[in-house]
Every structure is written in structure tokens, then in C-alpha cells.
Design a binder for these strands. Structure first.
Lengths: 233, 233
DNA sequence: TGTACATCAGTGAACGCGCGTTCACTGATGTAC
DNA sequence: TGTACATCAGTGAACGCGCGTTCACTGATGTAC
């Protein structure tokens, strides 16, 4: 009976999700290093060995969590962007970047898993690549569209370049910034690094005892970075 | 005899240093999580328990490594800055930031220890605070001196602020940016986040398969961030 | 100068812990005839 | 409809590992008289 097979498959998925949820709980409590397969099964009141029916090894579970993390960031960025009028490019940048910050602040360990120091002994497989580009794609689309609409005003800067560096820019352009000229691609990378940098500094505790009103600073910073890209001048 | 005491103290320091060196070797190989007191002593061919004569607990050793890491970054930044003519403020910014990047690329795990995701279960004690400000102090001094010399040209931006945010700026100003007006303090934080962000992205592997000529991109990025601070316009 | 004593760095065995993974198994469920 | 068989999720014991820390100890070195 086909429906019996479907039922089995559905239950299998539910159990898998239950394991992932528990893993995420543990991530929240003790970070990537504290993730223990045995503790997950203890939480579920199951035999420790049963987890290998769902995730053959610890790394397979890690991979799933990393993919989920990237997708969660991609989701909030896309959703925030979609709330703003299409031609309000500065507004879209602010909304999407604020959404990323908010998610990171509320999910510090999941953020650390994807954007923090690499997990030792673990090397991310191919399947994480696509989810990892989703957030970048959102920011890239905003700037590309602004550029296409003639709403990016940025004078080309001088500065030495190399063949390899030009190829790098082509690669980035092709991936997330269609039809955007070199100097704006560079500015976009700087803005992305700035966003990522300020979020990491906050989430990883480097603002402690120094900066309390982090949301206000963040808004100012994003506005400056937008100006650096020639957006909303 | 006082000299005997001095000899003992000296040997004690040497052994301590030997332990730290081994710990750093391990850091290099397997990252902060892979640091094992037993393995350190195995490397030294000593009894595992002997380490507690030098570092009462694992966290004490961690603290030492973190302090050393911050000091190493501070050292290279100070040294690079000192090589450049005092009134070449843009050159000093470029030199100091390049030095930080270079150190980070060459010591990825030590960089991760101080600027990556926080080590779980470990909370940094008071004694790490001072070393942690050294790199910031270098960048702060460059910008402060440039500003005092009338070499910073940056129009104040608009944007909402709050009482708490103003206090934050005062705190940062007092710590590392004497006599610098609010909007330039903000720009400095953005530049610092951009530097930190771009270095972390590179060191933590987010440029893999995307950007190969990282030094060239870094130089462009630092020049843009300098412009964002009103330096070298 | 010689002897009794104090200091203290380093030893080695042990404690108690948690980990990921394996493997032969049991027992419920669904399938074929 | 009833019986023999196949599937496969979950079990529970075990393997072999490494960890940080403790504790009573030994033995060399330096100190006091």
C-alpha cells in the first residue's frame, strides 16, 4: 500500500525534525562545541544509537544545522526586503540589514555556527553552498536594481588592481550583482563586510561595556555604508 | 640566598612559557576547542598533573592565550604604524590595518580565539580588557591626530540619535578617540567594523571559491573605509 | 663544616565523566501468495 | 482469510577513547643553627 509508505516517510521526517529541534536547543545553550548526539537522544528519551538511523554521523547533523542557519538568514532578509517599496533602494537595504542583525542577536549561536569561527575538524560540503548565497543574493539584487534604475551615484576610485582581482570581481558580479560596474562591486563587498563585521562584533560580545544602544549605532552604520555604495545620496 | 630564589623564579617563567608555546601549537592545529591540558603535557613528556602548578585550571591558560593574542595584534599594529611618517595619516591607517590582516591570516586560530565566536563556558576576566584595547588605541590615535591636524574632512550626517547612543559615543571618545566629534567617532566605529569584518570573512573562509586576490581587495576596502572617515580626501 | 628541617616541583595512579559509533537483537508492521 | 516471510525502526550493551582535576607521594634543593 502506497499510503503506508507515505505515512512511514512522513513519520521519518517528523522524527528527523524533532532531532534537529533538540540539536538547535542545545546549540542555543552551549554553542556548536556543546552539541552532543547522546544528549539529544537523552532529551528525547530514546536510545543513543537510534540517532544513526537519521543522521549517519555527527557531521551530517552539523551540515543540516548549517544549512538551516543560512536559510533562516536568507528568509528574514528576503522577507524584510519584500516589505519595502521596490524603488526605495535605501529603504530596502536598511530593512534587510536590520533583519539580519535582529536574527543574529536573537540566535547568537546559530549565527556563530554559520558566520563565526569555523567548527574544527568539520569541513562544509557542497550542499551548504547554495543556502550560503541567499542573504548575499538579497543585498546584491537591491544594489543591482538600484544601479539599473540609475539610482546609484558613485565616482570610480583609483587604486591598483591585478588580473586575479578583476576575475574576482567578475565572479562576484556574476553570482549576485548583475551588470554592476567594478567600483560598485567593490563598494558592495565593503558594505557587506561592514554589515557582517558590526553584527559579529555585537553578537560576539565586543561591544560589551562600551556600546549599549546598539540599534541606533547599527542604523547609523548601515546608512554610512549605503552612502559608501552610492545609495540614497 | 636571593639569587637562588631568582633562579627558581626564572625557571618557573621559562616552564610557563614552554607550556604556553605548546598550547599555541595546539591552537594552530586544532583550534580553541582542541586545546587539551593532557596533550600539552604529553608533548612536553611530563606528568599531566604537573600543569596545575603553573595554571590552576584550564580557563587560566585560556586567559593567558587570549591576553597574548590581543597583545600580538596590538604589537603588529603599533609597529606598522610607527614605520610611517607621523603626518601621513592615510598611510598610517593603511599600514596598521594591513598589519592586522597579515597577522590574522598567518595566525587564524589565535585570531579566532580573540575575535571569533566566544569560547563556550568561558567568560573573559577583567585582565583581558586592557590588552583588548591596544589595537583600537592605535587606530584611534591615528584618527585623533589627523583630526587635531585638521586633516579629517567629513560632513556631519543627519540621523536620529538617543541619550544612550550619545553616552556610547562619549565612552568611545574617552577611551580611544580624544577630542573627535560625534560623526567622526561613528565613522571610526564603522571603519573598525569594516576592517574586522573583512578580515574575519577572509580568515573564517567566506571568501573561498569567490575571492582569490584578497590583498588587493583588502587595500581597496581599507581605502574606501578611510574615505568614509574623511581621511585622505 | 655538618646535620636536621622546610620547601616545593614533579609524579603516577585514580576518579568520574561524557563522547561517537558498532553490533547483534527484538518486535511491530506491512507484503505476497 | 490465513500463514510465512521481509522490512526496518528502535534497543541496550559494549568498545575504546580522551578529558580536567585530586591527592598522597618522592626526592632534590635550599635554609637555619
Amino acid at each position: 500500500m502506497a499510503s503506508a509508505q507515505r505515512l512511514r516517510a512522513r513519520i521519518r521526517e517528523e522524527v528527523k525534525q524533532e532531532i534537529i529541534d533538540r540539536a538547535r536547543d542545545q546549540l542555543r545553550e552551549s554553542g556548536p562545541g556543546g552539541l552532543s548526539l547522546r544528549r539529544i537522544m537523552r532529551d528525547l528519551e530514546w536510545a543513543p544509537s537510534a540517532i544513526h538511523r537519521y543522521f549517519p554521523t555527527r557531521d551530517d547533523l552539523m551540515t543540516q544545522l548549517i544549512i538551516d542557519g543560512f536559510n533562516a538568514i536568507g528568509d528574514v532578509a528576503e522577507h524584510a526586503d519584500a516589505q519595502v517599496a521596490r524603488d526605495d533602494y535605501l529603504g530596502r537595504w536598511m530593512a534587510a540589514s536590520r533583519a539580519v542583525r535582529e536574527w543574529a542577536v536573537n540566535h547568537p549561536h546559530e549565527y556563530a555556527l554559520v558566520y563565526g569561527s569555523p567548527v574544527p575538524q568539520y569541513s562544509a560540503p557542497e550542499e551548504t553552498v547554495q543556502p550560503a548565497t541567499r542573504d548575499k543574493a538579497v543585498f546584491g539584487a537591491i544594489l543591482s536594481q538600484a544601479n539599473a534604475a540609475g539610482r546609484v551615484h558613485l565616482a570610480p576610485e583609483s587604486g591598483a588592481t591585478t588580473k586575479a582581482a578583476d576575475e574576482d570581481l567578475n565572479r562576484v558580479r556574476e553570482a549576485v550583482l548583475p551588470d554592476v560596474p567594478d567600483h560598485i562591486v567593490r563598494a558592495a563587498i565593503v558594505a557587506w563586510a561592514g554589515l557582517y563585521g558590526i553584527v559579529s562584533l555585537e553578537v560576539f560580545g565586543h561591544f560589551n561595556h562600551m556600546i549599549e544602544d546598539r540599534a541606533t549605532l547599527f542604523d547609523h552604520a548601515m546608512a554610512m555604508l549605503a552612502r559608501g555604495m552610492g545609495l540614497g545620496v
